[in-house]
Amino acid sequence: MRLFWIIISALSNMFTVLLLAPLLEGILRKLTAWVQSRQGPPLWQPYFDLLKLLGKEDLESGELPVVQQFSACLALAAPLTVAGLLPLGSSAPLQERADAILLIYLLVLCGGATLLAGLSAGSTYSLIGVSREMMTAITLEPLFVMAVVVGALNIHSFRLESVLDGSPYAAAHFPWSGLIMLGVLAFSLQAFVNRVPFDIGEAETEIMEGPLMEYSGPKLALFKYAQMVRLVIFAALFINLFLPLGNDWRFPLGLVVFWSKVMLLVAAITVIAATHARLRIDQAMRYFAGLAGISLVALVLAVCGF
C-alpha cells in the first residue's frame, strides 16, 4: 500500500509538472512581450508548439540517429524523474528513502543529455555548443552541489525531504552559510534554466541553438519540453531549498503558496532575461568561478556551524 502511494504521488508530481511547464513558459513569453511592449503569443501557445512539433515527421539528421533519439528521451526523462522526487507544495513522494545525492546525479544527467545530443549530432555548430555547455556545466554544477551539501551539513543529514526544506538555514548559529548560498544560487539561477545572459550554449544569434541545431520534429519537441520542465524543477528546487515558508501549510493552501512562488520566480527570471545581454563564455566562466569561490566560503562556514 505504501509503495502504491509513493508511485501515485510521484506520478501525480510528474503529471503536474508536465501539465504546468508549458503554461509557465507561456507566462514567461507573455511577460517578456509585456516588457517589450508587444502583444505576445497567447498563453496556450507553448502547448500548441509542442503538439505541432510532436506531430511532425521524425527526420534523421546527424551522425548517430539512435543515440540522438535516446538523448532526446533522456533530456526529458531526467528532469521528470527529478520532478517525481521533489515536494511540490505537498510532502515529497519518497519519505525517508531518497538521498540528496541522487538528486545531484539526476541533475547532472539533465546536462548530460544535452551534451549527448550535441555530440551525436556531430555538426560543427553542435560541437561548439557542446564545448560551451561542457564548460558551463563544469563550473555551474558544483554551485548546486555546494548548496545541497551546505544544507546537508547544517542538518547533519542527506535525506532528501529534509534537505529540501530550507535546510541551508538550519545552522546552529545565525545561518550565514545559507544566506550566502541563497545569494550564490540567486545569481546563477539564470544559468541553471538556460536563459539570457547565460544561454551561451544555445545562443541562437551566435551558434544557432548549438547542440539542438540538428533536431527537428518530435525530438525537438522533447528537448523543448525538457527545457520547460527544467525551468519548473529548478524554480521548485530553489524554493524548496531557500524559500520554504508556507510550503507545508495545509493541503490546498500549501499548494497555492508553492505554485505562486514558482510563478513569481519565473517572472523574476523573465525580467532579468529580458533586460540583459548575453555574456561570452569566458566572461561567464569568470563569473561562475567567482561564485564558486564565495560558495566555498559558505561551505567552510557551514562546517563551523554558521
Binding site: 517589450q36 539570457v196 545572459p197 544561454d199 533586460t275 545581454a277 548575453r278
Partner: peptide
C-alpha cells in the same frame, strides 16, 4: 542588441 541577446532594447528601439 538582438545579436548580443538583448531583445528588449531591440523591441524598444523598433517601437
Amino acid at each position: 542588441c538582438h545579436i548580443v541577446g538583448f531583445d528588449t532594447l531591440f523591441m524598444q528601439s523598433f517601437r
